[in-house]
């Protein structure tokens, strides 16, 4: 991500230190991860210590400090999905992709995250890939869904 674009985003938020989280969210949304240089640039422009930027970037779940894979898998671990067997879906995805929640595989194909209630409890257990929801998942269906991505 180039410096000018980051400056634009900071300007949009009036270089206001209290908008630090909003700025990071904007960058995350556009770039899908937060490179160290971006964090340093923000720290400098907002006059906010790097310790605080780093704490925020690691405290909130929305941020990633490493590049993400081509496909984002979100597995709902909400209570409703949990009682309907979400952990079996997670086990299956972990087994097939070889990654754990928060990780990205070496080919940068999949990134795996667990999330809480996607608001589709009626369809639980729910799996979301690149924003598309797949409901009523069990191990076999999960494997079938994953096959469609490369």
């Amino acid at each position: 991500m180039d410096k000018e674009r980051i400056d634009q985003i900071i300007d949009k938020h009036h270089s206001d230190p209290s908008s630090l989280i909003q700025i990071l969210l904007d960058i995350q949304a556009e770039h899908h991860w937060l490179p160290k240089e971006a964090l340093e640039q923000i720290s400098e422009r907002l006059q906010v210590p790097m310790t605080r930027v780093q704490h925020i970037a690691t405290f909130y779940k929305a941020f990633s400090l490493v590049p993400k894979g081509r496909h984002q898998i979100h597995i709902c671990m909400g209570t409703a999905c949990h009682v309907r067997g979400a952990s079996r879906v997670l086990d299956t995805v972990e087994g097939l992709t070889g990654i754990k929640p928060g990780e990205t595989d070496l080919d940068l194909k999949f990134s795996l995250e667990t999330v809480n209630c996607l608001g589709c409890c009626a369809l639980g257990p729910v799996l979301e890939i690149d924003g598309k929801t797949h409901g009523k998942m069990a191990p076999v269906q999960t494997a079938d869904v994953l096959k469609n991505y490369d």
């Binding site: 210590p49 790097m50 310790t51 605080r52 704490h55 405290f59």
Partner: peptide
């Protein structure tokens, strides 16, 4: 480091059971 020395060389990272302290190497 933050309140007395105002250097902010060391801070917290992560949260919950994974919380740690971490130095900013440049500082």
């Amino acid at each position: 480091c933050a309140e007395v020395k105002k250097k902010h060389a060391v801070g917290f990272v992560n949260r919950g059971a994974n919380r740690e302290i971490s130095f900013i190497p440049e500082v």
